[in-house]
Every structure is written in structure tokens, then in C-alpha cells.
Design a binder for these strands. Structure first.
Lengths: 186, 186
DNA sequence: GGGGCACGATAACAATTGTTAACAAATAAC
DNA sequence: GTTATTTGTTAACAATTGTTATCGTGCCCC
């Protein structure tokens, strides 16, 4: 399996308005369905998204996107093969949508795109490496505390059962961990 | 924390013998100690290495390297800052060692080094992403079975307690999982 | 070949997590 | 406003994992 969701570096999208379309969607709207071929890339203007795949009938959420982040299935986008995951809105969201064809134009228009992309991939590599290392060195409670410290916006805006999935535990277990931490705090 | 061990793509090291030195080390030899600044990069000719860091007095092993793979702390190497992890031999090993200065020369001599590096980083990103996703979708037993299927050489050559650490569980638990799988097989 | 060390299996017990189900509370849909 | 749906909490029980300790084996070193 190849995983490669990708947040395109911050750009001033307004100036490329001839190539991108602004779209508003309600909460829980699927933008790309697992198994379909990606034809668009998205950039979050307002709201948030999650990326997930089906594992024996259960959602596994492995990434969240918020304002000023871009997301697409690069692999499906480039290869034309079915995407291995779905992209879905969590909150009602406003997005810039760009088609594959227009993105190719855009790439030629942006100076230093290669370098942007290189930096971006290096950043993502470090992100995943840290996630992996967090899992082998911390237990679920510690991972939750780490997430609270490093990404409080995720805790604040993402429904708890998606956070549980992201932490690799069940919603019930996360609820218990929160309960335990609350009791300790008092 | 920044994580960036890196296996340089396969190269014919013999032809660069004026820049690299061949060194043999016994098992359990530390090549780079956590906290020290990296001055060398290594390439495994024979044997295997592990990369680990100290977490509250306990080893956490998060990567293994075998024949024809290169390893260094790129970050420490580039920035001159202390390395966040140690590199240590598991088996008696023969390595090609290259100094920072000579690597810079080498980089200029290798045609298409940038592209090699780009590919390499993309590969590593996918590797870490898969490791992370494996952790949130599988339990320890499933992860062990996956490791057996995808990296049997790790199971074969790496001491079990390092494998346990890599899987994010205790040696005792891994021993139980193996015992359970053996009993099921009969 | 004796002594230490690394490695792995197992036992006993505590702690955590998964599973299933029932029940609130909040939100969305009509 | 009433009805569904989604989300979160809690309980009860099973299963798994962590912790600590003991034991045995194999290996290296002197």
C-alpha cells in the first residue's frame, strides 16, 4: 500500500482564481471515495477534513486537515489508479478545488515548485516518523496527552471517536482515559 | 524531535574507495552515540545495525539496517547538532565509513544525486506512513504477523527483544504471542 | 572450564484495553 | 417541535498486555 496524502505548501490561492473553484460542503461530505480515481485536489479555506480507509468494516482515520492545508491522493492523482482512502469533511467546510489539468498549469506557473515539493515531502516524512515513534514509545494515555499538547486543535474540533481511531484505540477506551485524567486533575 | 535516519540508495562503493574506508566491528558496537554529533555516514557491506534512543532508561529501537543500506543521522550530520539516537551493530559487521567532508565530494561526483535523494526521501516517507497506519489498524499480534510476512529477515536476524521494541510491545508479550501462534499452528 | 552476560520462556498478578450493550446528550433532519 | 442520527459515557466481562521475577540456555571472555 502506498500512502501519500499531502498538504501543498501555503500559497495565495486568490491570485490563481482562474484555475481554482471555491466550493462549500456540509459536514460529513465525501470528497473522494476509497476505490475511486482522484480527479481533484483540495485546499481548505475554512473547516476541516479527515482521511480514512475501511478496515474490515471499520473506519480507520489517519489524518486531519484544517485551514490553509491542501490534500489529495497524490498517488491516485498521478497514476490514475483507485484511491486507497476516502477524504471527507468533518465540519461544514469551504474549499478551493482544483482539477488535475489545472493543477498541471499551476505547477508551471509557480516559481520554485520543485523545491516547495521537496520541502513538503521532507516535512511529511518527519511527521510520519514522529507518529510511528510516538506509538512505539508511548501507551495510549501518553499519546493522548501528547496530542493534547502538540495538536490541541484536533482535540477541540474533531469528534472523539475519530481521535480514538487516530490514536489506535477504541472510542470506549479513549473515553475511559479522559475520565481517568479528569479524576486525577481534581 | 526530528527523525531522519536514511538509507542512501545502492551505489557501487568500490569505485569510490579513495573516499570511503572499510571497517569491521564486533556485535553490539556503538557507531554513533545519542547526544554526540555525527561525523560519519555508514554503509552496510555485511551484517546489520539498529537505530535506537533512550526513553526513561529503556531502549526504543525504531529501525534496522542490513546489507546494501546506508545509514546516518542526516540531521545531526547537516546541522552539527547532537544526534537524537544511537546507531549500533547487532551482528559482527563490515561497513564502509565515509566522513562528512568526503561525502560532500562524493555528492558532487555522483550524477543525478538530487533525484536519487528525492526518490529516497519519498520512499522513506511511504515507509513511515505505512508503519504508522499499521499501528493504528493492527494489534500487536497482527503487526508481528505482518512483519513476518513482509520482513522475515528482521525476524530471522534480529534478537527478539529488539523486535518487540520495534513492534511497540514488551519482550514478554512478544514471547507470549509467538507461543500462542505456535500452539495454534499445531 | 568457570563466571558473567545476553537472550528467551514462563508464571503470577496488576493494569489496561477490547467488546458489547444500554443509556444520555447533543445535533441534524423533517 | 418531534424524530432520527450522531456522539459520548458507563458498566460488565473477556482478552490482552505490562510488570516483576525466576529459570534455563547459549555464548563470549578470561
Amino acid at each position: 500500500m502506498r500512502n501519500d496524502t499531502s498538504s501543498v505548501s501555503t500559497l495565495n490561492w486568490e491570485q490563481y482564481s482562474h484555475l481554482v473553484e471555491e466550493v462549500s460542503v456540509p459536514a460529513r461530505t465525501v470528497l473522494l471515495r476509497e476505490g475511486d480515481v482522484a480527479t481533484n485536489a483540495y485546499f481548505v479555506k475554512k473547516g476541516c477534513l479527515r482521511v480514512w480507509f475501511n478496515n474490515d468494516g471499520k473506519d480507520v482515520t489517519f489524518q486531519f486537515f484544517f485551514e490553509d492545508q491542501g490534500v489529495s491522493s497524490i498517488e491516485s492523482f498521478r497514476s490514475g489508479k483507485p484511491s486507497l482512502f476516502s477524504i471527507e469533511s468533518i465540519e461544514p467546510s469551504t474549499l478551493w478545488v482544483i482539477s488535475k489539468i489545472n493543477l498541471d498549469v499551476l505547477i508551471r506557473e509557480i516559481p520554485g515548485y520543485q523545491e516547495l515539493m521537496q520541502d513538503h515531502i521532507l516535512q511529511r516524512m518527519n511527521h510520519y516518523a514522529r507518529l510511528f515513534m510516538s506509538h512505539i514509545k508511548h501507551n495510549p494515555e501518553e499519546r493522548y496527552l501528547e496530542l493534547m499538547a502538540e495538536s490541541p486543535h484536533i482535540i477541540r474540533r474533531v469528534p472523539q471517536h475519530y481521535v480514538a481511531s487516530y490514536l489506535g484505540i477504541t472510542p470506549v477506551s479513549l473515553s475511559r482515559i479522559r475520565n481517568k485524567l479528569m479524576r486525577q486533575k481534581k
